[in-house]
Each structure stands twice: as structure tokens, then as C-alpha cells.
Design a binder for these strands. Structure first.
Lengths: 221, 221, 221, 221
DNA sequence: TATGAATGAGCCTTCATTCAT
DNA sequence: GATGAATGAAGGCTCATTCAT
């Protein structure tokens, strides 16, 4: 027999604050997963960061494994580039000068990449390799194929951009260095100086790219 | 898995599998660390891959923590670029045409990057972030500053390469996309197709860069 | 395990599934306790079988411990033999021939033992040993002492039953094999074939016993 | 706990009472499993009974589930009856008087059933229903069919035992009540008085059976 | 009456590590 | 050098229980 009889007072304590425990768990989880890896993070740590007991996590998630899909659903995928572009007015873009559009777009994308959650998600991806780099490149490919290509082609026809490379290649050469900078300097553990260095490198790359790609009408004969 | 896979040398007396247990432990360790992370890999797994018991590892290493420095000492740092260049005859380089030198250098660096151990080491770096990207970029910086810069400057003075960008920038724009390709397609778990795609992208980038950077004497009027 | 499975009564307004949640909890509990043991059954399983949440059980019972007494009160004790005999008309019994009475009694007792709930209760008793066999034998003892003994004694005086054994012993020798059959073949997890085999063995035993105990007047000289 | 209690083997030096941790684990396991059920027993308890830590158990067994097969292999199946009979000289049996043989056999079987390990194993079987009663009856069936039947038949031909029942039935009627006594009074938790009561009931049954089955030559004529 | 969220205890298991052999 | 047995710590998860709603 001996059904567990306990004298101590168990169960839920009378009072507590709410504010969506589920999301607080995910916040703590992505932070710790990004910093220590999934295997290196215990539910105990996550619970402690949230201020609850581990067993309470099971009221919101099936288990440790179920946290990853939930993190993906909440913070990823990082389609920042695409989103940013979609947010812009497509007809306005085509009429603006390329250097304005590209600078503006890059600036906004970079701003997104540097949001805390985006940096955490990037680190998580790189660490756990959940098709990590695959996932990182997919948005860019989508962008090239579906969104930017026609615009760049239009610029080419307008004589604003050099025509001796296919639009896809130009876009890739514009984005790839920025992506490397992101990985190298804008991950979750990056120091202040690294972030700053990244900004400078990005700016330098954009300047370089524009001088390469643009056909400067004013200076031309 | 197949940690022990090596070019099955037929007609050779076996039992020389001993080949220094210490090294076999490190081989198994880097493989598993790269695939599963350090925290996600147990000494039991490593021992099993080697074919010994966990406690035997302690005859060769202080403990789990001592494996990482040993792995670094054995497989890294991946100064592939620098090594490759150092391996070349410096005086010959300056006299060769840039497209030949750069193509040749890139080809050899890429070959190194695709050696199994280099791929494993890259994955380990990315996963554990041991100053991961830092470590990945350091060789390039070293290269730029100490080795390639004077050569490129010489090419500029010879009128072989455009002079409107500083040598460091040009070199960075040459290497950064290759590094991104490495991270994206040449990590340890990359599929055959990913590796192949990486090769194509790298080739395309090199072509692109040479057309950008070179001053084509033949076509010039 | 589909404890709630019942012949889906088509064309009947549902929501009468309520049928006293308390009883449905007990139904599920005895089923699971018999199958898995008390310690091996969680309140969650019981609640799931009933279609409620675990915490709802506490609206009906003090806790897990309180389920056992409630199960006893509802399904046990299995005083089947006594009940059956009490249900018969005592004066009629004495006037009937022993073979008729005993066969009839055995048949009715066996029928009771094979009711689903009786089988579940038996399995629970055996599992948890709540004075298991004690409890199983007590009704028989009661029966012997209080009810059957005088009847058998009367039969002895009438020359219907052999007198060379005390009535208590005869009754015990009649019931013990049946009880063993019950335990072996009529527990909750018994297969169809086991149940059938039990029936055959029981019948064989009854025949055997009657030939042993009866004094056959017709064949006698 | 008295886990180590066994019939002190006289005349043999104890050597080292260390006696293989593996076996001490099994001893503790069967004891606790029989008393509390498998689900109701924690590895902690077993380890504590042995005097080691729970994790040490995993050096000897795969896990909790692996203990049951090991217990079966060590303590079961309880083919006590068959073993006892096989231990006797078959030719001697046939020449002995039935009452001597049967009394002797029953006495030895009962002695076996009352060995501590046999009582523990019985309780475990009943509790966990591992084909519990099935397993309990199988030896008897085997006995009837293969060993005892020919002997009984021989006794019948010698006119020592009544011929109006098939040998199998007689044997079953001899063994079944003993088996019920075993289950009821000789399980692991039985009190001293219960055990004693069982002995008396068994003796009474044997006397009864012999008076039923034997053809008394002396009183005849 | 029933649910959802929470708790503290405990369970099974794995881990890194030690040590005698 | 290598193994088997052991340990203490920790990890993921379940459980009975509580309480506000």
C-alpha cells in the first residue's frame, strides 16, 4: 500500500503574478540556448531564470525537445531582408535611385539583425546547426529570385546599374559580405566593439559595392 | 558515424590499430563535438567510438575539459590561407599575373577548407563559439596585413589591378564571400549537394571579382 | 484502454454521460488498479480514462488514498457465496437433494465470480495483497460455519451424504478447488480460452465431488 | 530486511560475504518487489537495502526493467513439484505404497514452497500477474502429464488406488487444494499463524485425499 | 464541479570522475 | 594502459496535491 502520504504542504502557492509564463519561458530558453547550447542548458536553469520550478514548464510544453519548435515559431525564421523589402512601397522603389534604395534597405535590414532577439536566434542557429546556414541563406535567395531581381533588372534597363553581370549575382555580392559580417560580429555574445566594427565594415562594403555597381551619370562623359 | 573510416589499406597487417590511442580519442572527439556539441557528447560516446572504456580516457587526458585544448593543438587553428600563401614562393607570386595567383591561391585554400578535419574544426568553432568567428577571420586579417597587401600594392603599381580601392578592402571583398560560402556549405554536416553548390558559387564569385578588380590590358584601347 | 467504451447508443441525447462522475472515477480506478497496480496507476491515467482533469478528482475524493476504501465499498467484498445462498430459500434447500442444491449454488457463485467487476476486484486483491487471500477465504469460512454446515449436517442425517468427514471439511474440499480455478482462470486479464478452461475444470470438479460425497441411494442395494 | 538470510550451510567456510553485488541487488529486488510491487519500489530503496548508491545498480543491470528478467532467471520458475519428483528414484516410487509416496512428496514440495525465496517469488508472481497463476499451474500440469500419471496408473492396476476416476483428475484434486493453501497462507507477507494454519489445512487435506483415493486392503475382505 | 497553473518530492537515468586491480 | 565498480551530482520528467478561478 503505502500511498505517498505527505505531511508537508504541497501544491500551488496561493498568490503569484501572471504575465504569460509561456512566453517568459521561451525568452529565457532562447537566451540560454544561444549562450550555452541546448544540451548545455538544463530546464532547471530556464526555470530559475523565469522564477518558477522546472516542473511548471511541463504545464506549458511537452518537454525540453518541444521548446525548440516553439522558439522557432516565436522568434524565427529570420526573414528580415524579405520582410523589410515587403514593407517598402514597391512602386516607389523602382522610381528611386538605386543608391538610395540599397542604402536604405541595408540600413533597415542591419537594424533588424541587431535586435536582441535576432542576434539570439542567429547564435542558436549557428550553434545547433538546425540547417543553420541553410536557414540563414534562404531568405536571401528568396529575395533575389522573387523581389529584388526585377527591380535590379529595371535599374539596368534604365542605365543606372551596370549590365555586365546577371542581377542575381550582383545581389548576392551585395548581401553575402553583409551576412558574413552578421555572423562574425552581430551574434549574441558579440562585444560592443565587435558590433561597432561590424557597422564600419558594413558601411565600407556598401560604399564599395555602390561604386562597383552604379553607373555614375554625373561623372560620366 | 564511421569515425574510424580510413582508406582501407588492403594487404597490411592489422592490429596496428593502436596508432596512439591518444590520437584516436581526439579524432573521435572532434567528430562528435562537431556533430553534437561538447555538452551534448559524453565521454562514453567517445570511448565507444574508439573502442575502449570511458575510464581509459583518463590515462591520456586530465578529463573532458582537457580535450578541447588538445583538439585545438592538433587540428587548429585553421590558418589555411596563410599557410597556403606561405607555401608559395613569394618572389614568384609577384611576377605572376594576379588572376593566375588569385585563382591558384583560392583553389588551394578551398581545397584545404574541404579537408574533413578542417570541416570538423569549422563546425566545432561555430557550435561552441570559442571566439568562433573571431578565429575564422583572424587568419584573413593576418593575411591582408602581412602578406597579401604588399603583393596587391605591387600589382596596383604595375597597373594590373584597379587603384581606386585600398588593397585591404579589395582583399576583404575577395575573401569575405568565400568565407561565407565556407560557413554555409562546407561545414561538417553539409550534404554532397551543398558542397557542390558551394564550389559553383565560389567559382562564380572569383570570376566576378577578377572582372571587377583586374585591369584588362588586352581589351583596353 | 477505452474504459468508457459502451455500445454507442445512437439517437439518444448525449451529455447524460454524467452518470455521477464519482462512479465513473471508481470504474476507471478499479480497472486500472487491477491491471497496473495502485502504485503503477496515476491519477492522470484515471482522469484521462474518465475524460476529466486530474484535479477534478479532488472534488469527489480526498486523494488517491481515498480511492481504495471507496472501491471496497462499491465493488467488494466479494461475498458472492454467502449472498447467493442467502438469496435462496433456506427451508427449500434442506428439502432439495444435495446434488441439485450444490450444483445450483456453484453455478450461481461461478456466474457472480465471472462478472466483470468481480474479476477486477479479484485481480486488485491479488495484486495489492490487501489481505488478499484472507479476504478471499473469509466468505467461505463464514459460509461453512454459519450457513452450509447445518444443511450438510442435515443431509448427513438423512443419509444423503457420507458421514465419515466433518461437514466443514467436506465444504472446504468442495470450495477450495473452485477458488483456485477462480484465481487462475477468472482474473481480470484472463483470456477467453482461460475462462473457458476454468468452466470445464469447475464442472469436472463438481462432478468429482458429488461422486465422492453423495451416497447414491439408487445404486445401493 | 534479512535479505541475506539463507539456510546456513554448515561445514563450509564463509569465505567472503561480499558475494557479488549483482546477486545482492537481486535479493533485495525480489524482496521489495514482492512486498511493494515493482512500480511501488524505487531503485533507491533497492540500493539502500544493498548498501550502495542507485547509480551503482547500472553497472550491473541495464535499468529497472532489466531486473525482472534477471529475477526470473535466478529465482523462478517455481517448478518445485517437478523438481522434487525428479529428485526421487522413479523405480522406488512405483514399488512404494501410495500413501507413503504421496505424503513424502507433498511434504517435500510444501517444504520447498515455504523456502523464503519461493514465497517471495510467489508473491511477486501474484502481484504482477506475469502470467502469474498460469505460471503457478504449469508445473502441476507438467507433473500430471509426464510424471505422476503413469505412476498413479500403475497403482490403479495394482489395486492400490480407486479406478473410477482418471489419474489426471485424481492428481489435480490432490494438488489444487494444496496450491490454494500455498497462495493463501504461504505468500511472502504471511504471518507465522497463517503459515501454521496452512500446514494444518494441508495435512487435513492430505489425510482426506488418501482416505478418498486409497483402497484400504487391510480393512477389506 | 471542473480547469489550469503551480509546487515539492521523488524517480529513472546519465555523467564525469576516481580508484583498486 | 586499460578495466570494472563505485560515487555524487545533476538532468529530464512524473506525481500527488493545492488553490484561484
Amino acid at each position: 500500500m503505502e500511498i505517498n502520504k505527505r505531511p508537508t504542504r504541497l501544491g500551488r502557492p496561493p498568490k503569484h503574478e501572471d504575465r504569460n509564463t509561456r512566453e517568459r519561458i521561451l525568452d529565457a530558453a532562447i537566451e540560454l540556448f544561444a549562450r550555452q547550447g541546448i544540451a548545455g542548458t538544463s530546464l532547471r536553469q530556464i526555470a530559475q531564470a523565469v522564477g518558477i520550478k522546472e516542473s511548471a514548464i511541463y504545464a506549458h510544453f511537452e518537454g525540453k525537445e518541444a521548446l525548440c519548435p516553439a522558439i522557432f515559431a516565436r522568434f524565427g525564421p529570420p526573414a528580415a531582408v524579405v520582410d523589410e523589402l515587403l514593407a517598402s512601397d514597391s512602386s516607389t522603389i523602382a522610381r528611386s535611385r538605386p543608391e538610395v534604395v540599397l542604402r536604405d534597405m541595408a540600413q533597415r535590414v542591419i537594424a533588424r539583425w541587431n535586435e536582441p532577439q535576432a542576434r539570439l536566434f542567429l547564435s542558436l542557429l549557428l550553434r545547433e546547426g538546425m540547417g543553420g546556414s541553410e536557414a540563414l541563406m534562404r531568405p536571401a535567395k528568396q529575395l533575389v529570385l522573387d523581389l529584388l531581381t526585377p527591380i535590379v533588372r529595371q535599374w539596368m534597363e534604365q542605365g543606372l546599374i551596370r549590365k555586365d553581370f546577371p542581377p542575381e549575382l550582383l545581389i548576392w555580392e551585395f548581401l553575402a559580405p553583409l551576412t558574413l559580417i552578421r555572423i562574425s560580429y552581430w551574434h549574441a555574445q558579440a562585444t560592443e566593439e565587435e558590433v561597432e566594427l561590424g557597422y564600419r565594415l558594413a558601411e565600407r562594403h556598401i560604399d564599395y559595392f555602390l561604386r562597383i555597381a552604379l553607373i555614375d551619370k554625373t561623372s560620366n562623359v
